[in-house]
Design a protein around this nucleic acid. Sequence first.
DNA 1: CTCAGGCGTTAAAACGTTTCAACATCGAGG
DNA 2: CCTCGATGTTGAAACGTTTTAACGCCTGAG
Lengths: 337, 337
Amino acid sequence: MKPSVGIRDVAQHAGVSNATVSNVLNRPDVVAPATRQRVLAAIDELGFVRNESARQLRAGRSRVLAYVVLDAANPFFTDVARGVEDAAREAGLALFLCNSASDGGREREYLELLHEQRVEGILITPVDAESARIAERGTPVVLVDREAPDGARCSVAVDDVLGGELAVTHLIENGHTRIAMVGGPLSIQQVRDRRAGAMRALTTAGLPADALTFLETRGLQVAEGRNAGERLVGLPASRRPTAAFCANDLLALGLLQSMTQQGLRVPDDLAVVGYDDIEFAAAAAVPLTSVRQPREQLGRTAAQLLLTENEPDHEHRHVKFQPELVVRASTAIKRRA
Amino acid sequence: MKPSVGIRDVAQHAGVSNATVSNVLNRPDVVAPATRQRVLAAIDELGFVRNESARQLRAGRSRVLAYVVLDAANPFFTDVARGVEDAAREAGLALFLCNSASDGGREREYLELLHEQRVEGILITPVDAESARIAERGTPVVLVDREAPDGARCSVAVDDVLGGELAVTHLIENGHTRIAMVGGPLSIQQVRDRRAGAMRALTTAGLPADALTFLETRGLQVAEGRNAGERLVGLPASRRPTAAFCANDLLALGLLQSMTQQGLRVPDDLAVVGYDDIEFAAAAAVPLTSVRQPREQLGRTAAQLLLTENEPDHEHRHVKFQPELVVRASTAIKRRA
DNA sequence: CTCAGGCGTTAAAACGTTTCAACATCGAGG
DNA sequence: CCTCGATGTTGAAACGTTTTAACGCCTGAG
């Protein structure tokens, strides 16, 4: 079952030394064509598979990047991951995806494992600010979609404050003065930033701070959005917001679903803005107005930054992209004030 | 930067031998409490991180499972992955996700890499029948959502023929006699099976085989669905199908979007059935009738099967689940014959 | 006082690669 | 005929861990 054929078995079978086999594997040009053929034949015959652990132990490096993602079920992150993978492949590296599922413990376990595996580098969208402060352990780390709290490492992010501002400004321009923001938990930096942006929009428009009701959720999944929808509908009509800004599209989709189920119309009874502009946003029950982020580019840039980490004169960089509002039916103006 | 502190450095720093350090790491109970404390302190002080490559080289095993997924952007697979991960964690293993993105070359590369890494086991939803026949290389492999062509390895699947039959039977019962099936490429076993099921439904209902028009797509993504929608609308109204069965929900969502854009109504002008019942199906523009598969359970079972692989008296098993039709608005009967 | 046995620790041998310096072999140039 | 350089191949050391068998020490029983 596991005779575990090694490089020396191949060598013996081909009548050469193990060094030669290694050469065939790593510098094919340096070995005579005849010998090379013989060795390749032996490899094939014995079904030899190079042992990466040994190779890596010797070499100290590992041809693999890893991306520890916050929620693999969120299409936003899979799009970012695609960008990462493209860049990694161009550099001849493979990508392992790890799903922390917003669980700090899980995240820590994966980080530990990846450090032990001596992967070339780690990209991470951390669960919370605490985990963003991961100790330097020799493996380069780049933060994705999150700013490094202390500037101690590279990061690639999108201006979430601006994003929140864009969304809420749009709602205000559409005449809304009672707005809900749905999102949470507040331990997530992005949620805080997007809320800050929302507040800034209020201020700029001269609205009081209590024009924004914050509905905190326990997570950023569809189910939480449905949940929030029920809470929203439960409010007395006089105090109920006429628009909702959701911290991401999954929440917005859940909210939408919940509205429909409860017989409320979007955008007439409640206008909705999402965040991320995932592919499903445009295909939703009511096509969703959303704040678009450059997903693939986010990932791609992060990977490129990571690859510069072990250049001798490396300085940590912080790239920040601009979000963009995409208006669709979920905020169309149909109301007659 | 990379002093690469090893177990012997720790040993020296703590005034013990490296064997003792290893014991502290692997069998803490066997070493005297006082020594243990001293060693742990040294580990902390030096920032020692165990080198998994060396460990693995020695041990021959690797505490990691991998799942090579067909399309990480498809929520169906991320749900399956969640099931896999849960089962893996219960067994004390971590999970690495690899995205083949329906690309045979990429898939081969990942498989090669994973073999070289000597992962404990590989789960894979293969790109096509060809790649399902991956040679045995010492690492156990289990097929997910696909049947082993030659029974040479374990597999966990769902009865796709039955699924196709359920979907099309439902459409026929709703009075449709010109039905399109959207999906492809036909190199994908599931697409073939689901079409076979559709044909069976026709036969059972006594309809001619040409009641089903097969619209082949180049892939199973949303964009391909939109594309198919345009082709569908391009047909002369007299020959245009009144219902469409899509090989997965992404296609169905794209189709839906395309219909709406072109001013056709669902289900009135075209009834639509999807496949997989992903979370977004229920939140779609028109909530989608779909064929539900036990996603998490699929993954969980596959992982459990994988873990039995190296039991001495192991026999390959083939688990097959039953799909289930979930009826929603996209196939509601509103037409007056 | 001796000895058996338990306990904690250790030296040394693996694991399968890569790499480096050294070594043959051979043809060409002196 | 000898030397030289080029070309191809090799033996052995190293990478950082785990593990096995042996070791020294101490205690308590005889």
